[in-house]
Design a protein around this nucleic acid. Structure first.
Lengths: 114, 114
DNA sequence: TGCATACATAAGTGCATGCTTATATAATGA
DNA sequence: TCATTATATAAGCATGCACTTATGTATGCA
C-alpha cells in the first residue's frame, strides 16, 4: 500500500482519538483481528456503554469497521483509512495487546462470539 | 537509536498532545530545527499566550526542550524522549511544515531570533 | 409469544481543555 | 533608569470529553 500524506487537521483528529488509553488499547487489540464488544468490556474492565461510546467515536471516524453476526457486533481495523499505515506504525511502539485476549481465553471468558 | 516499547498510558498521553492541530504543527515545524516563540506566533497566526500555553504542555511532557538566548526562547524536539522515534515516524505522515517558515522569511518576518 | 442476551443511545455530571484578557518577568537598548 | 520587546503566567469562560445510570433495539431461544 502506498504511503499517503495526511493533512494536519485529519492527522490531529486521528491522533486525538488514539490519545486515550481506552481507545488506544482497543485499536491495539484489533491489530490482531476482529473483536466483539463483550470482549472489549471484559478486557478493558469497563462498563458496556462506555466501551460502546468509544467504539462509536472510532467508527464515526471510520478507523474501525463493524460486522454484525447474530446478536454480536464484531469490530475490526479499517485498512482503507488514509491513516491506516500511520496507525499500524504507531502500534509497533506499544506493547502487544493480544496477551490480554489470551488471558481471557484462559479464564474461559471468551465464550461468546463464535 | 534503539526502538523502545512505550506503555499504553504514556503513549496515549503523547498522542493526546499530538492530537491538536496547533501542537502537531509546532512539532512538525521543530522537525527541521529549533524555532522561537515569535516564529510560532507568526506561522500559526495565534495569540502569544495561546502559543506559550501549548509550548508549556509540550515542555511539561518533555517532548521539547528550551534554550534561552538573549530575550528569545528557542524550542527544539527532545530527542532523548522515549517517544521521540514514534513522533519522528508520525511526522513522516504529515505535510512538511518548514514551507511555512520559508514563507515567513519571504515576508521578511523572520527578522527576530538571530 | 415472551424472556434473555448483546449492543446502542440518551441524558446528566464533573472535570479537562483551549481560548481570551490582563498582568508579571526578564532582557535589551536609549 | 526607563521604555520596549519577548515570553510566561494567571484568571475567567465556554466547550468538549469520558464517565454513569437509565432506557431502547435487535437477535436468539424456549
Amino acid at each position: 500500500m502506498e504511503k499517503t500524506v495526511i493533512d494536519i487537521e485529519p492527522a490531529a483528529s486521528v491522533l486525538k482519538l488514539l490519545g486515550d488509553k481506552t481507545r488506544l488499547t482497543i485499536i491495539g487489540l484489533l491489530k490482531d483481528g476482529e473483536c466483539c464488544v463483550c470482549e472489549f468490556v471484559e478486557v478493558l474492565q469497563m462498563s458496556q456503554p462506555s466501551v460502546s461510546q468509544h467504539l462509536r467515536k472510532l467508527r464515526d471516524a471510520e478507523l474501525v469497521k463493524e460486522r454484525k453476526k447474530g446478536q454480536w457486533v464484531f469490530y475490526s481495523l479499517n485498512s482503507d483509512h488514509d491513516a491506516f499505515l500511520m496507525i499500524e506504525e504507531i502500534l509497533t511502539f506499544i506493547p502487544e495487546q493480544k496477551e490480554k485476549l489470551s488471558e481471557l481465553e484462559k479464564k474461559g471468558l471468551r465464550i461468546c462470539c463464535d
